[in-house]
Amino acid sequence: MKPDSEAALADAIKSAKGPLAIHGGGTLGHAVEGAPLSTAGLSGISLYEPGALTLVAAAGTPISQIAKALAAEGQRLAFEPMDHRGLLGTEGEPTLGGVIAANVSGPRRIQGGAARDYALGVRFVDGAGNIIKNGGRVMKNVTGYDLVKLMCGAHGTLGVLTEVALKVLPVPETQSTLMLRGLDDARAVAAMSAALASPFEVTGAAHCAKVLEGGAVTLLRIEGFEASVSYRIERLKSLLKDVGAEMQVADAEMSSWVWESVRDATQMADLDGDIWRVSCKASDAPALAARSGAAGWYFDWGGGRIWIRTREGTDLRASLGSYDGHATLIRASRDTKAKLPTFQPEAHGIARLTAGLRARFDPRGLLNPGLMGPVTREVA
Rank of each mutant, 00 (worst) to 15 (best):
A318W: 07
A8P: 07
I233P: 00
T218W: 05
T27E: 02
H207Y: 06
A347E: 12
R364G: 00
A209W: 05
R358E: 07
G144P: 08
R263I: 13
L178H: 10
G26W: 08
R352K: 15
K17L: 10
V99A: 05
L366W: 06
L371D: 04
R76F: 07
D284G: 05
G356M: 10
D272E: 14
V211H: 09
A7I: 13
C280A: 11
L271S: 03
K68Y: 10
S230Y: 09
D242G: 00
G89N: 12
R311D: 15
R277Q: 14
P341T: 02
L236R: 02
L357Y: 15
G29N: 03
A188C: 07
T54P: 07
H207Q: 09
P50G: 01
T27D: 02
L340P: 03
E173D: 13
E173M: 10
L367E: 04
E246C: 03
T203D: 14
W301L: 11
T266S: 12
K2D: 00
G156K: 02
G302V: 04
A69G: 07
P107A: 01
E80M: 10
I100H: 01
I233M: 00
A332H: 02
R108W: 15
M1P: 09
G18V: 09
S261M: 09
E173P: 10
G304Y: 10
A57E: 06
G293N: 13
I330Q: 13
I350R: 04
S43F: 13
M372Q: 09
A102I: 13
G321M: 00
S230V: 11
I13F: 05
E73Y: 00
E378V: 03
A71Q: 12
I63L: 15
N130F: 13
M151K: 01
A347F: 10
L220G: 00
G204K: 02
A347C: 00
N368Y: 06
A338N: 13
G349K: 10
G373F: 00
L212D: 02
S333Q: 10
K337P: 06
L9Q: 05
T174M: 12
V379K: 15
A250N: 07
M179A: 08
E226F: 14
E213G: 13
C152E: 09
L320V: 13
A285N: 07
I330G: 12
L329T: 08
P172H: 08
I308S: 11
S292N: 11
A252Y: 09
T39H: 06
Y298S: 00
V32N: 06
W259A: 05
A380L: 06
L28E: 07
D270E: 15
P50R: 03
H207I: 05
T354C: 08
C208I: 10
I45M: 03
K140T: 14
L55K: 01
R108K: 15
N141H: 01
A12Y: 06
G365N: 01
S5R: 13
R291E: 07
V258F: 06
I132K: 12
L371A: 00
S5V: 05
L9R: 04
A197H: 12
R187M: 06
P36F: 00
S193R: 14
